[in-house]
Design a protein around this nucleic acid. Structure first.
Length: 415
RNA sequence: CGGGGUGUAGCGCAGCCAGGUUAGCGCACCUGUUUUGGGAACAGGGGGUCGGAAGUUCAAAUCUUCUCACCCCGACCA
């Protein structure tokens, strides 16, 4: 991709209505634009980061035999009436009618739809367990959307649902899913905690939140430095650890994932049952597992930035390498930079080349603001001695390398 | 929904209290010339229902009332 062709409207000044740093930087780096409160358009760079995160999620979900499906965003009220949530869920549920006066809601979560999907097809314990997931747009008419992608009304979410013949099987899947979640956030180089939490309105017996640690986080976490126990404020009343005789430390975090053991709350109300070994009808046991897509991206920025801009973890960077040409008047310089670009691209390294007719300052500022993990500079060092500068955005280290050395170094970071 | 705040050009703001030329500034944008290792310089230029409506007045961005949108604090959540 050529920078000159890419739609990245960067902003020099901090927009006034953006309070938290991830929101400010996503606006300034030309990743998102607001359409209405809590509703955003993703621009090319924003979408690329989102897609990279989704790809990681898909790999980890597929690895534990979860199967991807896609459920609708518009859901008939009938399903929500079956579980009683049509009345229980408040104004967060955006309700609408079609031309025939049929009533629908925009899906804030999909337990009803997925349970309806499987109840007619699954008849035997032999078909279980089954885990389905989707990466889809959710709508929750939040009372107060805020902080950019951190708390939107319309947002991308990975939601998975598992069905089991018994509780032991669910327990196993719950652990498998927790491990997959740890893999996902670890691959994104995020610092996070698994926190015991309350099930809230979801019902069921247990839940774990995945919290990316950040001072700007909306949630308080209490953790024990001795035994590693972590819980959130809803379930803890005392200041001491329930697992060992130590005091708890308070840290802040952003909830990016939440997994639940739902039990038979939904399968019972929706009569989703199978026959067991003895030929008896049993309600399936269910689990559900969510990850906030955009929120994770925002959390990654909260955790990885400096005064110049974003410092993307390679896994989430819209492009891994940015090639800066200091002067586009020098045709030989362009020629070699293009050759470098072609070779890296062929090797599978996500690369963009800044071929704009702008001053070097503009290019460095944009590059640092957007936060490409590596900047490659084709400039006077190349003209004078055929050397390239490779700058690591995270460490700030600068490497002076030959063409081939630079290619070799950056090829470590192919997709 | 309760409390606080903001709406003036794409972005950031001044002007409002104390009404009075053609509504201003910086950045961005367009044209030309010169520039090019850290957000270039000069010259010229385009862009505004001052969030909306009603009212007061000879006169409203400015005063009054209503209204809408957005932001921040609380309950909610991925």
């Amino acid at each position: 991709m050529r920078f000159s062709q890419l739609y990245v409207p960067t902003i020099k000044e901090t927009p006034r209505d953006a309070e938290v740093v991830s929101h400010q930087l996503m606006l300034r780096a030309g990743m998102i634009r607001k359409v209405a409160s809590g509703i955003y358009t993703l621009l090319p760079l924003g979408l690329r980061s989102i897609r990279k995160f989704e790809a990681i999620i898909r790999e980890e979900m597929d690895a534990i035999n979860a199967q991807e499906i896609m459920m609708p965003m518009v859901i008939p009220s009938k399903l929500w009436q079956e579980t009683g949530r049509w009345n229980l869920y408040g104004k967060e549920l955006l309700r609408l009618e079609d031309r025939h006066d049929n009533v629908f809601c925009l899906g804030p979560t999909h337990e009803e739809v997925v349970t309806d999907l499987v109840r007619d097809e699954l008849k035997s314990y032999k078909q279980l367990p089954l885990t389905l997931y989707q990466i889809q747009t959710k709508f929750r008419d939040e009372i107060r959307p805020r902080f950019g992608l951190m708390r939107c009304r319309e947002f991308g979410m990975k939601d998975a649902y598992s069905f089991h013949a018994n509780k032991d099987c669910l327990d196993q899947m719950y652990l498998t899913m927790a491990k997959a979640y740890q893999n996902i956030f670890t691959r994104c180089k995020l610092s996070f905690r698994c926190v015991n939490a309350d099930n809230g309105s979801m019902g069921g017996s247990a839940s774990t939140e995945f919290m990316v640690t950040a001072q700007t986080g909306e949630d308080e976490i209490y953790e024990c430095r001795k035994c590693g126990f972590a819980g959130n404020q809803e379930i803890l009343t005392a200041a001491s650890c329930p697992e060992c005789p130590s005091r708890l430390n308070k840290i802040r975090g952003i909830e990016v994932g939440h997994i639940f053991k739902l039990g038979d709350t939904y399968t019972k109300s929706m009569a989703a049952s199978v026959l067991n070994k003895l030929g008896n009808q049993i309600e399936m046991t269910m689990g559900c597992y969510g990850i906030g897509i955009g929120r994770t991206i925002a959390a990654a920025i909260e955790q990885n930035h400096d005064e110049k801009g974003i410092k993307w973890p390679i896994a989430l960077a819209p492009y891994t390498v940015n090639i800066i040409i200091t002067s586009i008047k020098n045709t030989s310089l362009i020629q070699y930079a293009n050759k470098f670009f072609d070779q890296l691209t062929q090797q599978g390294v996500d690369t963009i080349i800044d071929d704009r007719d702008d001053s070097i300052g503009v290019k460095f500022k944009d590059s640092e603001l957007i936060g490409f993990p590596f900047q490659v500079v084709f400039g006077k060092l190349w003209v004078q001695e055929e050397r390239i500068e490779v700058i690591d955005r995270i460490t700030g280290e600068k490497f002076i390398l030959s063409f081939l050395e630079a290619i070799k170094m950056l090829c470590q970071f192919k997709k």
